[in-house]
Nucleic acid binder design. Structure first.
Lengths: 274, 274
DNA sequence: TCAAAAGTGTTTTAAGTACACCCATGG
DNA sequence: CCATGGGTGTACTTAAAACACTTTTGA
């Protein structure tokens, strides 16, 4: 496939279009972001958001999902567009407009790291970010704000936890996102009077759940510098009483192929308006 | 400026980037949308959202504002990006990705109609839309949903009213947007215990206010087909008691150049969460 | 003087908040 | 057997929802 002065011609100039994804993960205490180390210029060697150029045969959402899978092996996660970044000089290579996405991944997705384009990938504490390429720090800061808004409107906090979780797991997600502390009992009561989750048989799942968590934790590559390894798994702590476990109740068994679309639920109202 | 095979060449294909704006207006009862009649192919003669191609020397927000001014003479309005529409075949001319904006205009902006590109412009009741070009019906439907979310989070409902408004004006905005009815007294009480608005001297402004409204109403071009003319002005109805009038309190007299940026206020909390 | 709009109450009901206690379990 | 995490209950406070009366003013 030799390049023989082949290319694409347009009457008017056109910017390039990319996607960049702010991948949020929750380690039981803090929110983390998955970054990749750039393997090419510009900003080679610096940390950056995973993303890349949109192809002509895909939508912008497909592009974001594809780049995520290619660069970080993260698949089937919650993706939501939250902004466009189009400052004229934001990319030294020329005019590049980027569409920014928020991605929410579960702890079991923490193992998926490193793809083709990126030299490597690692999780970073949101409060200890390294120097970032392009305007990616701006993008992340906007994403933090947007994430807070999204959690108020859509029941997607669960997507930062395993399919099966405890009430305390969920509370800590809200505390990390909103930067506050909630009363343990009030949170539980408010959650319980919502019909969006259902309890699962503890004895049936607890061992499987814990073993999987440990596996996920051990398989983490100990990336250097600011590495955020998998901390203690939420409910497998040396605590005493085993937690009740819950899962999101799937109300629409019809459209099962993409339950991401069913995340908008009007019945939640101010349940999540913490 | 003759075109002599001049153009722009890129190694990889690039989609074109446009903006499309869903301009919401409030007539005292219903939400309306400002549409333009397309003067060129494709979809010539059909109604469409105002918008156009982004230039290389402007950001996407600047593009949306510019196109709005050019095509509808609407200026200095609230603009917020709410989505990207990038289906591959959404434009018969080729690959065009559009960034969709919500615009909120005041009744006094109703007179501004008709620009260069567009053959003409007219207001349409949201429930009586004409056949629309491209995927603009999809965009409008998403915009309706997003507008509801935005009004819950940011105090921008005022931007659908004049600078000076009555409590009932504001309540009707929320009723139109959310499709519900609110108790007149509860709404008033809730609003009054918010410190975001301030009363203005009635005797000082009422006549000016009413005269301006009438002027705005009369100067409307009686566009045909589905024309939505300016209905009766809110507070100049044959009602009996004159309303107290309010205006948005500007808390930051520092950044006066663009008070649009100050619309995000954390102190409102669930005030607008109706 | 009457009809419709506007302003201001009160009572009831639900939700939020701040507490204290008991249980279960691993060390 | 005790320290710790986890489950549940109760009293207090605040906000929401439902509702009625009075005033104003153009016709």
């Amino acid at each position: 496939m030799e390049i023989e002065k082949k290319g694409y011609w347009y009457e008017y100039p056109r910017p390039a279009i990319t996607t960049d994804s702010v991948i949020f993960g929750f380690d039981g205490t803090l929110l983390n972001v998955l970054l990749i180390e750039r393997g090419a210029e510009p900003f080679k060697g610096m940390w950056a958001l995973p993303g890349g150029f949109m192809r002509m045969d895909e939508s912008i959402e497909e592009c974001a999902a594809r780049e995520l899978a290619e660069e970080t092996n993260v698949k089937d996660v919650y993706l939501e567009e939250f902004g466009i970044f189009s400052k004229i000089d934001r990319d030294p290579r020329g005019r590049v407009v980027t569409v920014a996405f928020i991605a929410l991944v579960r702890p079991s997705d923490y193992q998926v790291i490193g793809g083709d384009d990126a030299a490597r990938a690692a999780w970073f504490d949101l409060n200890m970010l390294p120097p970032l390429a392009f305007d990616h720090l701006d993008i992340i800061n906007v994403a933090r704000e947007k994430l807070r808004e999204i959690l108020k409107v859509r029941p997607v906090a669960f997507r930062l936890l395993e399919e099966v979780f405890s009430v305390d797991d969920l509370r800590k997600v809200f505390e990390a996102v909103n930067g506050t502390v909630y009363d343990r009992r009030n949170f539980q009561r408010k959650l319980m009077q919502w019909n969006g989750i259902e309890e699962v048989n503890i004895r049936h799942l607890s061992e499987e759940r814990d073993s999987r968590s440990f596996l996920c934790c051990d398989s983490l590559p100990d990336s250097s510098e600011h590495p955020i390894c998998q901390p203690e798994r939420n409910s497998s702590r040396p605590g005493r009483k085993i937690s009740k476990l819950f899962r999101l109740r799937r109300n629409n068994p019809t459209d099962n192929q993409k339950d991401i679309a069913s995340d908008r639920d009007s019945s939640i109202k101010d349940l999540f308006n913490y």
